[in-house]
Simulated scan of single mutants.
Amino acid sequence: MDKGRNWAETRGSRRRYLAGVAGLVGSIALAGCSSDDVDPPEQVTEADGTDTAAAETPPTTATERPPDRSTGDAADAALGDVIEGDRLALVAYSVERTATVGEYTEADTGNEFVVVDVAAKNKHDSEYVSFSSFLQLAIKDSESYEYDQSFVLSDDGLDSGELAPGEVTRGIVAFEVPDDAAGLSLHVDLEESLFSYDRAVVDLGTQGSGRTLTQTLAVPVYDTGDTAAYEDTRLTVNSFRTSTGSGYFTPETGNEYVIPDVTVENTGSEELTVSTLLQLSLKDDVGRSYDTSLAGSTVLDREFSQGSPIAPDSRRRGEIAFEAPRGQSPLYLVMDFDYFSEGDRTFFRLR
């Protein structure tokens, strides 16, 4: 692997680490809150409503499952089965046991990681919810030992935080356990509030019928050229292009650099700071997120500058590079105007 790609992966992993911490803190702060806490972004230009879509797939009802070996109670689901609460649905697609996650994270001697491919969906048609894998997921073994999620550096990591109505987040979560731990089950708190606990159990040793959570965004979806406004911030996605890089700085095989051209305007009376690392990401229709790419930024002649805040009554324009699978469609640029508030997560469809 070349030097440029290593730097890119480090930056992407760092974003997921920081976002994970922020999502954990934000989930604590926002537990039990609803989207009524803040005013949603305004539709400065017309937003395409075609993705506010489709009827929900009927929920899967778990049939007979083996007992949860850590408690003796019946498990609610197996791998591939969807479990549902009032506002959140979740599925664990697969599980792997490995000594390393990504390029940088190794388990301690005598331990290994249990890596679960997970997706969670906000089922509500109008309210935002806060989902934190660090607060809401844990693993138990047959001896009733419980293991919390580990901080790992991986570009495939699950993004925690705010979920818009109909939004899906998908990625891996890792738990470090002794390598002889057996009878593992995933314990899920389907209620995002700290003041109630709606537990469900997924038997990680049993394969279920399988169902994919489908993202059906029930919020305005903007197009390129549109502008969205939130408090004193206006964001316009002017256009986007793709690139295969050059020289040492190229995407992984099968990937491409996706490069939106954006304008951020500060309409307030105080300086505005925007972090493309924490506030902007790409997202596909199955819920996977793609972070900014340091290697991809080397092909930019007009990179979006973050060296200083945006002055009052002024604007800043520039390009931002992400790395994603080639030809992915639909593909969205997602903006969290205020990372620690609900109701402001905004989607621009690039293709």
Rank of each mutant, 00 (worst) to 15 (best):
M1R: 07
K3C: 10
R11A: 15
G12Q: 12
R14S: 10
G20T: 04
I28Y: 09
I28A: 12
C33T: 15
T45D: 10
E46F: 12
E46N: 12
T52Y: 08
T57K: 09
T57N: 10
T60E: 14
T63F: 09
D73R: 09
I83N: 01
I83G: 02
I83V: 12
E84W: 08
A92E: 04
V95N: 02
E96T: 15
R97E: 09
Y104I: 15
V116M: 07
A119D: 02
A120N: 05
K121D: 06
V129D: 13
S133W: 05
L135W: 14
L135C: 12
Y147T: 05
S150Q: 10
S150R: 07
V152Y: 04
D156L: 07
S160K: 03
G161Q: 03
E162I: 12
L163W: 05
E167M: 14
T169Y: 10
E176Y: 13
V177I: 15
V177G: 01
P178W: 05
P178I: 11
L184H: 00
E191P: 06
S196V: 15
D198L: 08
T214Y: 06
Q215W: 02
Q215T: 03
L217D: 01
V219E: 03
V221M: 05
Y230D: 09
Y230R: 05
E231Y: 08
R234K: 12
T236A: 04
S243K: 03
G245W: 00
Y248R: 11
F249G: 01
N255I: 07
I259H: 00
N266M: 03
G268A: 01
E271P: 02
S275D: 15
S275C: 14
L277W: 08
L277R: 10
S281N: 11
D284R: 07
R288H: 11
R288T: 14
Y290T: 06
D291G: 10
L300N: 02
P312W: 03
D313A: 11
D313I: 07
P325W: 01
L331W: 01
D344W: 00
D344C: 07
F347V: 02
F347K: 05
R351K: 13
